[in-house]
Design a protein around this nucleic acid. Structure first.
Lengths: 140, 140
DNA sequence: CTTCATGCAAAAAATTTGCATTTTG
DNA sequence: CAAAATGCAAATTTTTTGCATGAAG
């Protein structure tokens, strides 16, 4: 069980109810876009404003609490920051599943980076396709 | 030298001047967002409308001529479709450099996909950091 | 009690749509 | 020619901003 209050404080942010609700929603579902987050949070916190959701998602992304997952042809989703992983993204339904595995050849990558004098700060590997759920629907 | 007319026709799209201009701009610069494309194209084709740029980018993406490159914290850019490659994305200036190298462990990926019954259609590996240009500016 | 966050409404930005006209194949 | 694309303006959708009030540390 994660303690969102301490995650926020450890990253220099005040732990407001709004932020904790946002984190709970994202943590519960894994990946959500701004509207989805707002729609969920407003259920238990009816007075929250969409602007607050936007502001908080921005500041929590800047402070290493959240990570934006930009997507082809869709609104970006957000996830709670965690270690390197792969995203399996369904083109049909937009679902994202995490795979906790590192598939990148780190040595070759390091070589490329040093050749280019590129200072690494992070990476994302996204695999697009059709999830099992959507492919079974298509067949039936 | 690529022939954009035949790329369009091969993918079932009419080869209009607008589309070819858009492709020339993207091909020239590698990666551009919608506004940047419009700003360039309008120079040589003043009557083009932004709506036409939007419509064409969408249809060319749907027809495998273009690929959207969604980015953390920025508007998505578009590139001409090409084989699997890696993006080096500068967080400072937003530049994208392509590396024509495959860094993904394909066998492990295949295993993950088959375990999950996930039908693969494509992938993107994005590496974020600071490009040599921006890091030299910071030091000086 | 001081700093930062919220909520609201309004503004700005980004994207999409409808339709009369023009172009492509 | 027929089908599809353009350009324009208007409508939507998405995101940001300013500011008075309220909450967190």
């Amino acid at each position: 069980m994660k303690n969102y209050m301490s995650i926020l404080k450890d990253n220099g942010l005040k732990a407001t109810f709004q932020r904790m609700h946002i984190l709970e929603v994202i943590g519960m579902y894994g990946h959500k876009d701004v509207d989805e987050i707002y729609a969920e949070v407003v259920k238990t916190h009816p007075s929250i404003s969409l602007a607050t959701v936007y502001k908080n998602i921005l500041i929590m992304s800047q402070n290493n609490v959240l990570v934006e997952v930009p997507l082809i042809g869709r609104k970006a989703k957000f996830e709670i920051k965690k270690d390197c992983h792969v995203h399996l993204i369904c083109k049909e339904c937009g679902s994202i599943e995490d795979e906790d595995i590192d598939l990148v050849d780190i040595n070759s990558l390091k070589e490329v980076l040093s050749n280019k004098n590129f200072l690494y700060s992070g990476q994302e590997l996204n695999v697009y396709g059709t999830c099992s759920n959507c492919s079974s629907i298509k067949v039936s």
